[in-house]
């Protein structure tokens, strides 16, 4: 000894074994101490700081402004109702796409464990295709491939852009949900299937009564994660002209005559709104992850 290595972990263990033989006491293997949960956590005052940055960002520009122009803060406040309306639209798009994507994605996953080979193949190919395609490209496809109205018999159903955007965004969601469900199902020990089968449950009963109820808990965190990502991806709809928050922000800026000093405050406001909406979801996801990790 005395090599300077005594403090390293390996030598520490060796020290313990030597002590053991000396004192005839078995060393106690200490469980690795768990890290304090989350070294950094955002509090309400962090949000305040963020908000004040948005406001402050306007001040230097404001000070330099000629008196004829309205203050940046006033402009922002004036446009705020419209921008918030746009944000509500983002939320509506995200919730709708998530709902459609979840239902179709779950169905796709069930197709992948179907006993029918053709159904299984089809579901697998569909999942892989949409999972590995860029969201924006899928959005463009939905925009340009779907007609602007559907005629069923004498009935004409219009398909506005926002509806097409919802369809477009629900495609990658579908594929990802399918994978999340798959992960949930395979994460269960095979003993659950065996125990249920040995109790004479049919395959459908095993799936719906035993497997899926347990998976829901496990799937919730990644599912919420996906929802967060989807919400942030809704701004892609601005590229195809849906009047959500990002589009409206651009229009508001244009209406103000393209003042360059407005750019940062306006887009900071957009950021802030998305952050306020998505951050609690992320926190909640982490909480759920921890909770379920302990139980199962």
């Amino acid at each position: 000894m005395g090599t300077g290595l005594e403090n390293t972990w390996i030598w520490g263990v060796r020290d313990m074994t030597m002590k053991q033989t000396k004192n005839n006491v078995l060393p106690v293997m200490m469980a690795p101490r768990s890290r304090p949960t989350d070294p950094f956590r955002l509090k309400a005052w962090h949000g305040l700081i963020l908000a004040s940055i948005v406001v402050l960002a306007s001040i230097p520009a404001f000070a330099a402004e000629e008196p004829a122009k309205a203050s940046i803060f006033d402009v922002l406040v004036r446009w705020m109702p419209l921008l918030l309306e746009g944000f509500v639209f983002n939320v509506v798009i995200s919730i709708s796409a998530m709902a459609i994507g979840t239902i179709t994605g779950a169905a796709l996953r069930l197709g992948q464990i179907s006993l029918n080979g053709a159904v299984r193949k089809f579901a697998w190919v569909t999942t892989q295709f949409f999972r590995n395609a860029p969201w924006l490209v899928l959005l463009f496809f939905a925009m340009f491939l779907l007609p602007f109205e559907i005629k069923i018999g004498g009935l004409t159903i219009p398909l506005p852009d926002w509806l097409k955007a919802i369809f477009g965004l629900s495609l990658p969601v579908m594929a990802n949900v399918s994978e999340i469900v798959r992960g949930g199902v395979v994460s269960l020990p095979s003993g659950q299937w065996e125990a249920a089968e040995s109790l004479a449950f049919s395959r459908t009963q095993v799936l719906w009564r035993i497997i899926l109820p347990q998976c829901v808990k496990r799937m919730l965190p990644p599912w919420m994660n996906l929802y967060s990502i989807l919400t942030m991806a809704t701004v892609l709809a601005s590229i195809v002209g849906v009047s959500e928050m990002m589009t409206l922000t651009g229009q508001a800026l244009a209406a103000e005559g393209g003042r360059s000093d407005l750019l940062i405050p306006f887009y900071s406001f957009v950021l802030l709104m998305f952050f306020i909406y998505c951050y609690p979801i992320a926190r909640w996801t982490i909480r759920l992850e921890k909770k379920f990790a302990v139980i199962n």
């Binding site: 020990p189 003993g191 659950q192 065996e194 125990a195 249920a196 089968e197 040995s198 109790l199 004479a200 049919s202 035993i210 109820p213 347990q214 808990k217 139980i295 199962n296």
Partner: peptide, 21 residues
């Protein structure tokens, strides 16, 4: 008919395999 068979044959496993929910 596996289901009919399994109604007559009970099984207990090493890992209990209770339904945790």
């Amino acid at each position: 008919d596996k289901l009919e068979l399994r109604k007559k044959v009970g099984m207990v496993f090493q890992q209990y395999n209770l339904f945790p929910h």
